[in-house]
Design a protein around this nucleic acid. Structure first.
Lengths: 292, 292
DNA sequence: GAATATCTCTGACTAAAGTCAGATAATGGA
DNA sequence: TCCATTATCTGACTTTAGTCAGAGATATTC
C-alpha cells in the first residue's frame, strides 16, 4: 500500500471514531451551532469578535445564537469596558455546568478509546498519537514573507532577543549587537519570514543584502515548544530560496558559541566556517554558503 | 500530561486537519448530503436499500437526493431485476467523473499532510498512523452473545473449520470431530460470542456445560486479518466471564498440536495442561482452568 | 388466495444553518 | 468637528437537513 492510501485509511478510521463525539453533542438537546458557541466561550469568557472569528460565523447568525443562549440562562453578554462597541460573552453558573458536560464528552470519547486496550497497547497508542500529532503540526506550519516590524515579526524578534540574553554566557544587549539592520530585511534588498502554527507565530528569520550578490541571514529563531519539528531546517531552506530569488549567489551568517545546535544545522545544510566578516561582539563563528 | 489529555489533544489535532476535507467537498457546488450519496454509490453502483443503511438516511430524504442527482445527470436509478420493489443506483459517465473529483480531494488532503515533511518524517508518520489505526480498530471490537446458528456465527464457524482443514497435518472433517455440541453453546447451559469490527464478524467462541459446574470452551477463532489486536485474549476473558455467570467454576478445552500460538495464549491466561477428557480425534492437548 | 411485510416514493412538515442588506452606536484619526 | 471605520444587531430571506404519515407496488407467508 502506498503512503497516500495509508494516510487516507488513517483519516477514515480516525474520523469515523471521533465523529461520534459530534453526534453526542446533540444529545444535550441543543443544536450543534449553539453547543459550539457555548463551548468556545469557555469558562473564562470571550469577546464576541474573537468568538465569531474562531468559529467563522456570520455576525447576525452569531448574535442570534448568543441571544438564544442568553434566554436559556447559560450565557451573559455585556458591553466591553475598553471599547464600548464590543461585547463580551461569559458563562453563567448554569452555563459553566453545561460547558463541563460538553467537556466531559471529549473525556468520555478518549476513555472509550483506551478502555478496551491492555496497558501495553495503551502506551503504544499514546506514543503513536503523540508522533502523529507532532508530525501533523510540523506539516501545517506555514511561512509568510512580511515586514520585520509587523506585530508577529516583532513578537518573534523580542522572543529571540530574550532567548539570546538567557543563553549567551556574556548576556545580550540589543544596542551592542549590529541590530540596526532590520529595515534591510524587507524588499527590495531583503526579506523577512514568519512561520506560523495554527495562526500563532512560532519562528522567524530574515535575509538582507550586505554586499554584491551577497546576503546575510539574521534573526533565525524557533519557539521552544515548536522545536523538533524540522522548522529551523525548512526556514533556512526558505530563506535560501528567497536569497536566490533576490539574485544572491552567496549567503553568510554569524552565530554565538552557545548556540551549538545551530552550528550543527548550518554545517549539515552545506555552510562552511569562514573568516570574521563583521564586528558583532556576540559572534564567535561565521558561516558562508555559495549557491551552485 | 495524562493519557486522557493526550488522546484529546490528538483528536483535536486530527479532526481540525481532516475537517478541511468536508469543507472542500462543498466547493464542488453540491450540498454535503448529495456529495455523500454520490460518493457512496461509487463507480460500481449500489442498491438504494444498502445506500440508505450505510448513510443512515430517511427513505424519503434519500429518494429526493437521488432524484436531484439524477436531474443533474450524475446518477441513474433503475429497478432491480432480482426484487422489483428494490431500486439500484449507478453513476453515469458524468457521475463517475464527479466521483473521481471527490476521491481526488481525499488524495489531496493526504498529499498535503506528507508534502512538507522530510522522507524520514514521512516514514515515522506512516508508521505511527498504522499503529493508531490498528489500536483504534482493536478498541472498537464489540462482543455480543448470540445463537450459534445466526448468520454471522455460522460464517465464523465455517471460516474456523476451513482454517482447521488447512492447518491440521491430518486435515479436518467436521463429521469426525465431536462437533455435535453447537446447540449446547446457547442459554441456559452455555453461550456463544461473536466479535465484530465495524459490523463485520471477525471472531467467535463458545462455552457449553460438559459436567457439574464445568464448561468447555469451543470454536475459538479470530479472522486472519484481525489478528495481533489482542482479540483472542479478550474473547477468552469474555468467555470466562460468561462461564462464571453460568455458575461454572472450571473450564476445559482441547486443541490440536498445530495451533501453537493458541497453546501459548492458554498458558499465559492461566490454563494448565490436563489429562485427555474427550475422544476428539483432532485433539492433542487438553487444558483446564479453575476459577478462584 | 388472502393477509402481511417490505421497498420506495410523494406530500407536508419543522428545525437548523447560513446569507445579505441595512440600521445603530462607538471609535479613531484628519 | 467631521468622516471613515468598526462592532454589533435586526429583519428578511434561502438552502440544507431531517422527520413523519401515508400510498402504491411487489414479495413472502400462512
Amino acid at each position: 500500500m502506498d503512503m497516500i492510501e495509508r494516510v487516507r485509511r488513517f483519516n477514515r478510521a480516525v474520523t469515523t471514531r471521533t465523529g461520534t463525539l459530534n453526534e453526542s453533542y446533540l444529545d444535550r438537546g441543543r443544536s450543534f451551532g449553539q453547543a459550539r458557541v457555548l463551548f468556545e466561550i469557555g469558562p473564562s469568557g470571550m469577546d464576541v469578535r474573537t468568538l465569531r472569528e474562531r468559529l467563522s460565523l456570520d455576525s447576525g447568525y452569531c448574535s442570534r445564537m448568543l441571544k438564544a443562549l442568553e434566554k436559556q440562562g447559560l450565557v451573559k453578554v455585556r458591553q466591553s469596558a475598553a471599547d464600548r462597541r464590543r461585547r463580551e460573552a461569559s458563562l453563567t453558573a448554569k452555563g459553566r455546568a453545561e460547558w463541563s458536560a460538553y467537556d466531559r464528552l471529549s473525556d468520555d470519547l478518549a476513555r472509550s478509546m483506551l478502555a478496551p486496550l491492555t496497558e501495553q497497547q495503551r502506551t503504544r497508542l499514546i506514543d503513536a498519537m503523540a508522533t502523529v500529532e507532532t508530525l501533523i503540526a510540523a506539516g501545517s506550519v506555514t511561512f509568510t514573507a512580511e515586514a520585520p516590524d509587523s506585530a508577529d515579526a516583532r513578537f518573534c524578534i523580542e522572543a529571540y532577543f530574550a532567548e539570546l540574553a538567557e543563553r549567551f554566557e556574556e548576556g545580550f544587549d540589543v544596542a551592542l549587537s549590529n541590530a540596526s539592520g532590520d529595515p534591510g530585511m524587507a524588499p527590495p534588498g531583503g526579506t523577512f519570514l514568519v512561520a506560523r502554527l495554527a495562526g500563532r507565530p512560532v519562528a522567524c528569520g530574515g535575509v538582507k543584502t550586505v554586499g554584491p550578490r551577497t546576503g546575510e541571514i539574521k534573526r533565525m529563531w524557533v519557539a521552544r515548544d515548536a522545536r523538533g519539528l524540522g522548522i529551523a531546517r525548512r526556514l533556512l531552506d526558505a530563506l535560501e530560496t528567497e536569497a536566490r530569488a533576490l539574485g544572491m549567489t552567496r549567503v553568510v551568517l554569524d552565530t554565538n558559541r552557545a548556540l551549538t545546535e545551530a552550528h550543527a544545522m548550518y554545517r549539515k545544510a552545506g555552510y562552511h566556517e569562514t573568516e570574521r566578516f563583521n564586528d558583532n561582539p556576540y559572534a564567535h563563528l561565521w558561516f558562508a554558503k555559495d549557491f551552485a
